[in-house]
């Protein structure tokens, strides 16, 4: 509860700040893809100057929806915030209970759509992470580059090990016989899914730490360690 709450507060504060999210060549994951012409480092500048709010607000919905509807996080926040139940064998806080059959909790059934939205964002984060090895056109390695790569690896492990992904790549089949590609994909997703909770937490921390590192560099608080060819 404390960690989820802290992450929520951190994400909100950095999203409204609209500054210190880019330190060449690093772009904070909270602001990627940057969709406005007013961005310090636009990814796809498709929204004009008329938009004067933080660009983070335009993209925060996708990863937020993915995490909010994630089966693992549902378990955590039903326990932590709804006390339904607070812990196993501890009585529910509410006298009435309808589970996920009524609005708004039946919207959890659209988790796979949140996955569909999260995958392109993840692809762009990979693009950013690979771009983080290019310093004014020259190859280099900075501590920020390594942090960004670690972040997208963790995010990929979380995204592709998700229960909806596991279902969509092959879990919907009753028989895998003669469907070796889908069986292989399903098996890989199963392996990731077995540690889905770890991927979920580590990727949550890594997004926060990646942003924090870039933010501190941009603010001049720390200096990026880097080697450039």
């Amino acid at each position: 509860m404390l960690v989820l709450g802290l992450f929520g507060v951190y994400a909100f504060v950095v999203s409204i700040q609209n500054a210190n999210y880019y330190y060449d060549p690093y772009l904070s994951p909270f602001y990627s893809p940057c969709l406005t012409t007013g961005c310090v480092h636009p990814t796809f500048p498709i929204i004009g100057d008329w938009y004067n709010l933080s660009p983070a607000f335009l993209i925060v919905g996708s990863p937020l929806a993915f995490r909010v509807t994630c089966y693992y996080y549902r378990r955590s926040y039903y326990r932590a915030f709804f006390w339904s139940p607070p812990a196993c064998t501890v009585p529910d806080a509410r006298a009435k209970y309808s589970g996920e059959t009524r609005f708004p909790f039946n919207l959890q059934n659209l988790h796979r759509y949140a996955l569909y939205l999260a995958i392109p964002v993840l692809a762009i984060l990979w693009f950013d992470a690979i771009g983080a090895f290019s310093f004014d056109g020259r190859f280099g390695v900075g501590l920020g580059s390594l942090i960004m790569i670690a972040n997208v690896v963790l995010l990929s492990g979380y995204t592709f090990g998700c229960h909806a992904a596991r279902y969509l790549v092959g879990g919907y089949l009753d028989s895998f016989h003669g469907k070796s590609l889908r069986f292989r994909l399903w098996s890989w997703a199963n392996q990731l899914n077995a540690r889905h909770s770890r991927w979920a937490w580590f990727s949550l921390f890594s997004v926060m730490l990646t942003d924090l590192y870039i933010r501190l560099c941009a603010m001049g608080v720390i200096t990026d360690l880097r080697w450039v060819s």
């Binding site: 549902r74 378990r75 039903y78 339904s84 064998t89 309808s98 996920e100 059959t101």
Partner: peptide, 11 residues
């Protein structure tokens, strides 16, 4: 069987 009532708390 009411599967929708389950809120996957994993107990």
């Amino acid at each position: 069987h009411g599967l929708g009532y389950c809120n996957i708390t994993k107990c």
